[in-house]
Design a protein around this nucleic acid. Sequence first.
DNA 1: CTCCCAATCTTGTCAATGGCTAGATCTGGG
DNA 2: CCCAGATCTAGCCATTGACAAGATTGGGAG
Lengths: 184, 184
Amino acid sequence: MAYHHGQLRAAVLDAAVEVIEADGLGTLSLRDLARRAGVSHAAPAHHFGDRAGLLTALAADGYRLLAEALAAAGGDFREVGVAYVRFAVTHRAHFQVMFRPDLYRADDPELVEAQRRASTILYGGAASLRPDARATGLAAWSLVHGFATLWNAGVLPDDVGEDVDTAARRIAGILFPRGADATH
Amino acid sequence: MAYHHGQLRAAVLDAAVEVIEADGLGTLSLRDLARRAGVSHAAPAHHFGDRAGLLTALAADGYRLLAEALAAAGGDFREVGVAYVRFAVTHRAHFQVMFRPDLYRADDPELVEAQRRASTILYGGAASLRPDARATGLAAWSLVHGFATLWNAGVLPDDVGEDVDTAARRIAGILFPRGADATH
DNA sequence: CTCCCAATCTTGTCAATGGCTAGATCTGGG
DNA sequence: CCCAGATCTAGCCATTGACAAGATTGGGAG
């Protein structure tokens, strides 16, 4: 059987994302991922150690991708929020794992670094927005995080609509009615 | 070995809550719950069918408890939000399961009914609050749900404080600065 | 009071999983 | 060319969820 030579790690991570988005975290099995990658059942262990190791890598990837997505949204505070929601919906697997620290090793250096970068971008906009910047940033984060979570869980009423961007922008507009931006 | 005669169902559910709050959903095992209840490994299956059945019952209990907690908060809209957060923090196990419909049978009649009651109370306050009541209710729900989720995940900054009620009230106050209540 | 039945619980079994160990195979640098 | 380390395989064990078949219990019909 042909060896993967360094591609295995990426192949397994890709397969994991696919499985989680299709059937949820519950049915995720290291052995199944190995089968999908065409390797023996113990091959992934070499790259990730154990299940927690795999999810740690997935979460770290997630925080890196989130940082990119938020940075690409520009300085407008509300658009950063919309980007946050869009990320959560288009990267369900990553998002799901990222906010369940009980599943991975939260003290992993790479992960901590990626986390720090993402939260810097997320809080950067809020810091210069209002006098009570800290609390405002928290409220904004809570708002978009909650909306994204509820959207992904599929428990929102039907009349929210189909387009998550539009819905998120409308909801965020209630917290910041005047379309406030980071340059106050 | 003495039979439980109807107590088993409650005993297993209690044990499940205990395990989830101690070690998370990942390590939850029907066999372990059976051991804790002092019965054979297949006894729980009679009451719940399978794992999804157990979690369905847990989620339904959760929605019932949530409805009670929200109702007890009175008509003040912000206090309902605070009660929502308090419930999420004091009933972590229930809350966690409730918003992961992939884990249980979302079409269970009892569960659907409990869900309906809870969401009626949650939305009841918002409906009479502003012209754009629907969107406002969604924003409020998103805000408190997100805050509770982030709090439980342990990813909030340290300076949020220790007391979740106080923190939640401060955050909710940003969406409703004037302490608005349901009687507008 | 007795007997039967439905609910409840037990025992036994099977495939699948995570994690471990020992060993095979490949690849690049000296 | 050759070896050291990285990568993967093969085999094993305890645990789990799910299922099937049988035992035990208590209450109601007669």
